[in-house]
Computed example of a mutant assay.
Amino acid sequence: MEQLKLIAETRHATGTGASRRLRAQDKIPAVMYGHRSDPVSITLDRLRFRAALNAAGPNAIITLELDGHDHLTIVKDMQRDSIANRVTHVDFLLISLDETLEVDVPIRLVGDAALAGREGAVVQQQLMSLHVESPAGVIPPALDVNVESLSLENPIRVSDLALPDGMESLLDGDTLVAIAQRTRAAVAAEQLDAAGQPVSADEAGAADED
Protein backbone atom coordinates (compact mmCIF):
# COMPACT_ATOMS: atom_id res chain seq x y z
CA MET A 1 0.00 0.00 0.00
CA GLU A 2 1.23 3.45 -0.91
CA GLN A 3 2.31 5.56 2.09
CA LEU A 4 2.55 9.34 2.06
CA LYS A 5 3.36 12.04 4.55
CA LEU A 6 1.63 15.39 5.00
CA ILE A 7 2.16 18.19 7.50
CA ALA A 8 -0.91 19.03 9.57
CA GLU A 9 -1.52 21.90 11.96
CA THR A 10 -3.75 22.00 15.02
CA ARG A 11 -6.93 23.93 14.30
CA HIS A 12 -8.09 26.07 17.20
CA ALA A 13 -10.83 28.12 15.55
CA THR A 14 -13.87 26.14 14.45
CA GLY A 15 -17.21 26.97 12.88
CA THR A 16 -18.41 28.01 9.44
CA GLY A 17 -16.64 31.36 9.36
CA ALA A 18 -13.28 29.94 10.43
CA SER A 19 -13.54 27.13 7.89
CA ARG A 20 -14.37 29.59 5.14
CA ARG A 21 -11.26 31.64 5.96
CA LEU A 22 -9.09 28.52 5.89
CA ARG A 23 -10.40 27.49 2.48
CA ALA A 24 -9.67 30.99 1.18
CA GLN A 25 -6.04 30.32 2.15
CA ASP A 26 -6.03 27.01 0.21
CA LYS A 27 -6.21 25.00 3.42
CA ILE A 28 -8.63 22.20 4.28
CA PRO A 29 -10.26 21.86 7.70
CA ALA A 30 -10.12 18.27 8.89
CA VAL A 31 -10.50 16.02 11.91
CA MET A 32 -8.36 13.10 13.05
CA TYR A 33 -9.86 10.41 15.29
CA GLY A 34 -9.79 6.74 16.20
CA HIS A 35 -8.04 4.29 18.54
CA ARG A 36 -10.21 5.57 21.39
CA SER A 37 -8.56 8.98 21.29
CA ASP A 38 -10.39 12.29 21.35
CA PRO A 39 -10.99 13.83 17.91
CA VAL A 40 -8.41 16.44 16.96
CA SER A 41 -9.29 19.36 14.69
CA ILE A 42 -6.52 20.00 12.15
CA THR A 43 -5.79 21.78 8.89
CA LEU A 44 -3.65 20.81 5.90
CA ASP A 45 -2.57 22.26 2.59
CA ARG A 46 -5.26 21.63 -0.04
CA LEU A 47 -2.91 21.30 -3.04
CA ARG A 48 -0.57 18.87 -1.28
CA PHE A 49 -3.50 16.77 -0.10
CA ARG A 50 -4.95 16.65 -3.62
CA ALA A 51 -1.56 15.67 -5.07
CA ALA A 52 -1.24 12.87 -2.50
CA LEU A 53 -4.62 11.37 -3.37
CA ASN A 54 -4.01 11.70 -7.09
CA ALA A 55 -0.70 9.87 -6.72
CA ALA A 56 -1.75 7.06 -4.40
CA GLY A 57 -5.52 6.69 -4.56
CA PRO A 58 -8.27 7.01 -1.95
CA ASN A 59 -7.03 4.14 0.28
CA ALA A 60 -3.47 5.40 0.71
CA ILE A 61 -1.97 5.35 4.17
CA ILE A 62 -1.19 8.95 5.02
CA THR A 63 1.21 9.82 7.80
CA LEU A 64 0.09 13.09 9.35
CA GLU A 65 2.88 14.95 11.10
CA LEU A 66 1.24 16.99 13.84
CA ASP A 67 3.20 18.92 16.47
CA GLY A 68 6.29 16.81 15.85
CA HIS A 69 4.49 13.46 16.11
CA ASP A 70 3.60 11.08 13.26
CA HIS A 71 0.14 9.51 13.03
CA LEU A 72 -0.79 6.74 10.57
CA THR A 73 -4.19 7.44 9.01
CA ILE A 74 -6.44 6.76 6.06
CA VAL A 75 -9.14 9.01 4.65
CA LYS A 76 -12.43 7.86 6.14
CA ASP A 77 -14.66 10.50 4.59
CA MET A 78 -14.41 13.58 2.37
CA GLN A 79 -16.88 16.37 1.80
CA ARG A 80 -16.84 18.29 -1.48
CA ASP A 81 -18.25 21.53 -2.78
CA SER A 82 -21.10 20.49 -5.09
CA ILE A 83 -20.30 23.25 -7.61
CA ALA A 84 -16.50 23.50 -7.69
CA ASN A 85 -15.99 19.84 -6.65
CA ARG A 86 -13.28 20.95 -4.25
CA VAL A 87 -12.63 19.03 -1.04
CA THR A 88 -14.05 21.08 1.83
CA HIS A 89 -13.49 18.75 4.81
CA VAL A 90 -11.67 15.49 5.50
CA ASP A 91 -12.08 12.86 8.21
CA PHE A 92 -8.85 10.95 8.94
CA LEU A 93 -9.05 7.62 10.78
CA LEU A 94 -6.08 6.58 12.92
CA ILE A 95 -4.86 3.08 12.05
CA SER A 96 -2.03 0.58 12.49
CA LEU A 97 -0.51 -1.36 9.58
CA ASP A 98 -1.78 -4.74 10.81
CA GLU A 99 -5.27 -3.43 11.56
CA THR A 100 -8.11 -4.97 9.53
CA LEU A 101 -10.21 -2.45 7.60
CA GLU A 102 -13.24 -2.50 5.34
CA VAL A 103 -12.63 -0.43 2.21
CA ASP A 104 -13.66 -0.17 -1.44
CA VAL A 105 -10.72 -0.80 -3.78
CA PRO A 106 -11.06 0.55 -7.36
CA ILE A 107 -10.98 -2.06 -10.14
CA ARG A 108 -8.84 -1.30 -13.19
CA LEU A 109 -9.20 -3.44 -16.33
CA VAL A 110 -5.88 -4.12 -18.09
CA GLY A 111 -4.70 -6.19 -21.05
CA ASP A 112 -5.95 -6.79 -24.57
CA ALA A 113 -9.36 -8.48 -24.84
CA ALA A 114 -8.41 -10.22 -28.09
CA LEU A 115 -10.78 -13.17 -27.60
CA ALA A 116 -13.75 -10.86 -27.14
CA GLY A 117 -12.67 -8.85 -30.18
CA ARG A 118 -12.61 -11.92 -32.40
CA GLU A 119 -16.17 -12.65 -31.28
CA GLY A 120 -17.31 -9.20 -32.34
CA ALA A 121 -17.68 -8.14 -28.70
CA VAL A 122 -16.47 -5.29 -26.54
CA VAL A 123 -15.59 -5.23 -22.85
CA GLN A 124 -18.24 -3.98 -20.45
CA GLN A 125 -17.08 -3.30 -16.89
CA GLN A 126 -19.83 -4.25 -14.44
CA LEU A 127 -18.09 -3.58 -11.12
CA MET A 128 -16.06 -0.43 -10.51
CA SER A 129 -14.72 -1.25 -7.04
CA LEU A 130 -14.46 -4.24 -4.73
CA HIS A 131 -15.61 -4.08 -1.12
CA VAL A 132 -12.97 -5.92 0.90
CA GLU A 133 -11.74 -6.65 4.39
CA SER A 134 -7.98 -6.43 4.60
CA PRO A 135 -4.98 -5.54 6.74
CA ALA A 136 -4.27 -1.88 6.12
CA GLY A 137 -0.71 -2.50 5.00
CA VAL A 138 -1.61 -4.62 1.95
CA ILE A 139 -4.44 -2.60 0.40
CA PRO A 140 -3.35 -1.56 -3.13
CA PRO A 141 -4.31 1.71 -4.86
CA ALA A 142 -6.31 -0.40 -7.33
CA LEU A 143 -6.91 -4.01 -8.34
CA ASP A 144 -5.65 -4.72 -11.87
CA VAL A 145 -7.89 -7.26 -13.63
CA ASN A 146 -6.55 -8.77 -16.86
CA VAL A 147 -9.19 -9.17 -19.59
CA GLU A 148 -7.15 -11.30 -22.02
CA SER A 149 -9.22 -14.42 -21.22
CA LEU A 150 -12.56 -12.59 -21.37
CA SER A 151 -15.03 -13.93 -23.95
CA LEU A 152 -18.77 -14.24 -24.49
CA GLU A 153 -18.83 -17.53 -22.60
CA ASN A 154 -16.19 -16.57 -20.07
CA PRO A 155 -17.05 -13.44 -18.05
CA ILE A 156 -14.88 -12.33 -15.15
CA ARG A 157 -16.42 -12.76 -11.71
CA VAL A 158 -15.30 -11.72 -8.24
CA SER A 159 -14.24 -15.32 -7.57
CA ASP A 160 -11.73 -15.03 -10.46
CA LEU A 161 -9.83 -12.13 -8.90
CA ALA A 162 -6.36 -12.66 -7.46
CA LEU A 163 -6.31 -10.74 -4.19
CA PRO A 164 -3.28 -9.87 -2.04
CA ASP A 165 -2.55 -12.19 0.90
CA GLY A 166 -4.85 -11.39 3.79
CA MET A 167 -7.44 -9.56 1.70
CA GLU A 168 -10.95 -11.01 1.50
CA SER A 169 -13.79 -9.92 -0.74
CA LEU A 170 -17.05 -9.10 1.01
CA LEU A 171 -19.06 -9.53 -2.21
CA ASP A 172 -20.60 -12.74 -3.54
CA GLY A 173 -18.13 -14.65 -5.70
CA ASP A 174 -20.62 -14.80 -8.59
CA THR A 175 -20.77 -11.00 -8.86
CA LEU A 176 -19.80 -9.96 -12.38
CA VAL A 177 -16.73 -7.79 -12.78
CA ALA A 178 -16.56 -7.62 -16.60
CA ILE A 179 -18.42 -9.20 -19.52
CA ALA A 180 -18.02 -9.39 -23.28
CA GLN A 181 -21.00 -7.91 -25.13
CA ARG A 182 -21.69 -8.23 -28.84
CA THR A 183 -21.72 -4.99 -30.80
CA ARG A 184 -24.70 -4.06 -32.97
CA ALA A 185 -22.50 -4.30 -36.04
CA ALA A 186 -21.52 -7.88 -35.18
CA VAL A 187 -25.13 -8.89 -34.60
CA ALA A 188 -26.27 -7.21 -37.81
CA ALA A 189 -23.63 -9.04 -39.84
CA GLU A 190 -25.10 -12.39 -38.79
CA GLN A 191 -28.78 -11.56 -39.18
CA LEU A 192 -30.19 -11.87 -42.66
CA ASP A 193 -33.60 -10.79 -43.84
CA ALA A 194 -35.84 -12.99 -45.95
CA ALA A 195 -34.09 -11.89 -49.16
CA GLY A 196 -30.72 -12.86 -47.77
CA GLN A 197 -29.54 -9.29 -47.31
CA PRO A 198 -27.76 -8.12 -44.14
CA VAL A 199 -30.01 -6.38 -41.64
CA SER A 200 -28.99 -2.82 -40.75
CA ALA A 201 -27.54 -2.05 -37.35
CA ASP A 202 -30.70 -0.09 -36.44
CA GLU A 203 -32.91 -3.07 -37.35
CA ALA A 204 -30.66 -5.40 -35.41
CA GLY A 205 -30.95 -3.16 -32.40
CA ALA A 206 -34.73 -3.15 -32.72
CA ALA A 207 -34.74 -6.95 -32.97
CA ASP A 208 -32.66 -7.16 -29.80
CA GLU A 209 -35.14 -4.95 -27.96
CA ASP A 210 -38.03 -7.18 -29.05
Rank of each mutant, 00 (worst) to 15 (best):
D70Q: 03
H71N: 13
H71Q: 02
L72N: 01
I74K: 00
I74H: 11
V75P: 06
K76F: 08
Q79S: 13
D81I: 07
S82K: 13
V87K: 03
H89T: 06
V90D: 03
V90S: 08
L93K: 08
E99G: 06
E99F: 06
D104I: 04
V105R: 01
R108W: 11
L109G: 05
G111D: 05
R118D: 11
V122G: 10
Q126G: 03
L127Y: 02
M128I: 12
S129D: 13
L130C: 12
H131Q: 13
V132T: 04
E133K: 15
S134H: 07
A136V: 06
G137K: 15
V138Y: 01
V138L: 08
V138W: 00
P140R: 02
P141Y: 05
P141N: 11
L143H: 00
N146Y: 02
N146Q: 02
V147N: 00
V147S: 06
E148W: 04
L152F: 07
E153C: 09
E153R: 14
P155D: 10
I156C: 05
R157V: 09
V158Y: 00
S159E: 15
A162R: 14
D165K: 15
S169Q: 01
G173F: 07
L176R: 05
L176W: 02
V177G: 04
A180C: 05
T183Y: 00
A185W: 06
Q191S: 12
L192S: 10
